[in-house]
């Protein structure tokens, strides 16, 4: 029972194209698992299947040992945080309005100062609208929104993909601290191997809708299970050196 999220034979097709082949995978509690792979490998699809933005064609997804059904989907989503690449902030609400939206709906109180401190977001910027924030600040707000209801599970879909390198590096460092401090179970999707190695306890490498290999970066590097694994690692490393 160490796994918080269990995928049993989960698959998804878009028309005739298989986005995710039947897949079994467990995500360990309190750990950060990184899904990595080239575009269209099925990593985002897996994330969206877990939060049920997509329904699987086959298989079962269990969270904390229980299946999610249409009757408890809303409560389930309240316990899962979801951060996407462009932040997905609501433009008509201030940073504060975005963060507190769900808590206000549920009549819950939130320690906003603590969230700001945790994500290193300047409290005086809380009353700005998304259009008045920088890209990095927007992602910090998005993260606060995802963490506001103290979720069991945090899903991040390329959260740093649209940021410039300096901001990205700072946020990577902050994310790692946050995950550690909160003992947060997190699943992060990225296509950047350095980011995966820095943030992930475990790396899951995917290609064409299948899991190719999982393990630490060291394991992937020293014991690649296929030529694709070594090619993927080599390509990323040469990119990082140039």
């Amino acid at each position: 029972m160490n796994a918080l999220v269990e995928l049993h034979g989960v698959s998804k097709r878009y028309g005739s194209a298989a986005a995710l082949q039947p897949t079994d995978l467990n995500f360990a509690r309190g750990q950060t698992t990184v899904l990595i792979g080239p575009s269209g490998c099925g990593k985002s699809t897996m994330l969206r299947l877990i939060i049920r933005l997509l329904e699987p064609d086959s298989g079962k997804i269990k969270i904390d040992g229980a299946s999610v059904s249409s009757s408890n989907i809303t409560e389930f989503r309240h316990r899962v945080g979801y951060v996407i690449q462009d932040g997905g902030l609501f433009p008509h609400l201030t940073a504060r309005g975005n963060i507190l939206l769900m808590a206000r709906q549920l009549n819950k109180r939130i320690a906003l100062d603590e969230l700001c401190a945790l994500t290193r977001f300047p409290a005086q910027a809380l009353d700005r609208f998304p259009a008045e924030l920088s890209g990095g600040q927007r992602q910090r707000v998005s993260l606060m929104r995802a963490l506001a209801l103290t979720p069991k599970l945090l899903l991040l879909d390329e959260p740093l993909g649209a940021l410039d390198p300096l901001v990205r590096a700072a946020l990577q460092k902050d994310l790692k601290e946050i995950f550690q401090r909160l003992q947060q179970t997190a699943i992060l999707v990225t296509h950047d191997l350095a980011e995966a190695a820095f943030l992930g306890n475990e790396i899951v490498l995917m290609n064409e809708g299948r899991i190719v290999q999982k393990g630490t970066l060291g394991e992937l590097r020293s014991q690649p299970t296929s030529s694709f694994v070594s090619e993927f690692i080599t390509a990323q490393r040469s990119l990082a050196l140039t």
Binding site: R48, L53, T74, V80, Y82, I84, H92, M102, Q105
Partner: peptide, 26 residues
């Protein structure tokens, strides 16, 4: 991305419409 964020937050259909979609389309 706005629609998915609203859904993933766990807002009910009515709340999504009232709080998010209609104000943005206003």
């Amino acid at each position: 991305s706005i629609r998915e964020s609203a859904t993933a937050l766990g807002l009910t259909t009515g709340a999504r419409l009232r709080r998010i979609y209609l104000p943005i389309a206003s």
